Amino acid sequence: MEFLENITTSWIIIFILTGFIAGYIDSIAGGGGMIQVPVLLYSGIPPIFVLATNKMASLFGTLMATIKYYLSNKISLKVVSIAIIPCLLASYIGSELVMYVPDNIIQWAILISIPIALIFLLKKSKEFKEEKTELSKKNIVLATAPIGFYDGLLGPGTGTYMTISMKKFLHLDYIISTASTKPLNLATNIGSAIAFMMAGKVLWMIAIPMAISNMLGSYVGSHYAIKGGEAFIKKVLIFVLVFMLGANILKIIFT
């Protein structure tokens, strides 16, 4: 792997800082991959190794966030237990389908999905709490499985969209929605991480320090999400969506 010769100590430090920021953002609103992937690509690492290394680092960050939210009793175990299998199946179907979709269509589909999410996020809704809302199996599956499908089909911003969907369609608090998204996102990511490892595509010299910093960022981010509540999480969600929109527009312009 000749490209590894260009990965200097300075790049490792940049990867560590990037991993922390991505973990922080991802634990609150999702979208950490939109931060890590461009930096890894810019360093000259081939795309397949970038995807594998990013997935491994993000996996550990999501695991940390899941543990932190679980210990704080913020995860809706009912939602997770009902949604996890449908999300896994939907993600698998999406991954199978995406192999037949042209890259330009995928790119535009991602771009269109972002402003739609912004509309849902900014639209005013009544204040509901989880304990005051009846969560039927049908509603839980309908609110989460399509996002699982999106995760397999497209991917970027899955955690963000899942949080918004749970808030808008299951009427959960943003903090409960954010927390419950993490174990679902963790489950849908494990399969691809295993596949990348078995294929030997994970760059461990980069993945390990990024995973550690991602976990630290995730720990700090989930702490502030729990402390800051709905107002804080909503602000970060808006920032992430606007960032994703801008990044995808620039990608289309310059490619």
Rank of each mutant, 00 (worst) to 15 (best):
10 S>I: 10
34 M>R: 04
66 T>G: 07
234 K>V: 10
212 I>A: 11
39 V>F: 11
235 K>A: 08
98 V>W: 00
241 L>H: 07
186 L>V: 05
245 L>W: 07
48 I>R: 13
180 S>Y: 01
242 V>K: 08
66 T>Q: 05
172 L>E: 07
11 W>F: 14
13 I>L: 11
130 E>K: 10
196 F>R: 10
178 T>Y: 06
24 Y>F: 15
99 M>C: 11
117 A>P: 07
112 I>H: 00
218 S>F: 01
41 L>Q: 10
8 T>Y: 00
120 F>D: 11
59 L>S: 05
154 L>G: 00
70 Y>M: 10
136 S>W: 02
142 L>D: 09
250 L>H: 11
208 I>K: 00
4 L>S: 04
43 S>K: 03
253 I>C: 05
230 E>T: 14
109 A>Y: 01
65 A>H: 02
206 I>M: 12
88 L>F: 15
179 A>I: 03
109 A>R: 00
81 S>Q: 13
155 G>T: 02
95 S>P: 08
210 M>R: 02
15 F>E: 08
104 N>F: 15
249 I>H: 06
120 F>W: 14
87 C>S: 14
107 Q>I: 13
16 I>H: 04
119 I>K: 04
36 Q>P: 02
9 T>N: 10
120 F>V: 13
163 T>H: 05
60 F>E: 05
122 L>V: 12
187 A>H: 09
116 I>W: 07
33 G>W: 02
245 L>G: 07
201 K>C: 04
164 I>P: 13
139 N>R: 12
161 Y>D: 06
204 W>Y: 15
14 I>G: 03
89 L>W: 03
196 F>P: 10
143 A>P: 06
36 Q>K: 11
221 G>P: 05
239 F>Y: 14
191 G>R: 02
184 L>A: 04
76 S>Q: 04
216 L>K: 06
69 Y>S: 07
158 T>H: 02
39 V>M: 10
35 I>P: 09
194 I>F: 14
118 L>E: 05
74 K>E: 12
202 V>F: 09
190 I>K: 00
241 L>D: 05
205 M>P: 00
126 K>A: 13
42 Y>M: 15
243 F>P: 10
206 I>E: 04
218 S>I: 04
115 P>H: 06
43 S>M: 03
77 L>M: 13
217 G>M: 01
166 M>H: 01
223 H>S: 15
139 N>S: 14
225 A>P: 08
159 G>I: 07
238 I>M: 12
77 L>F: 10
187 A>V: 13
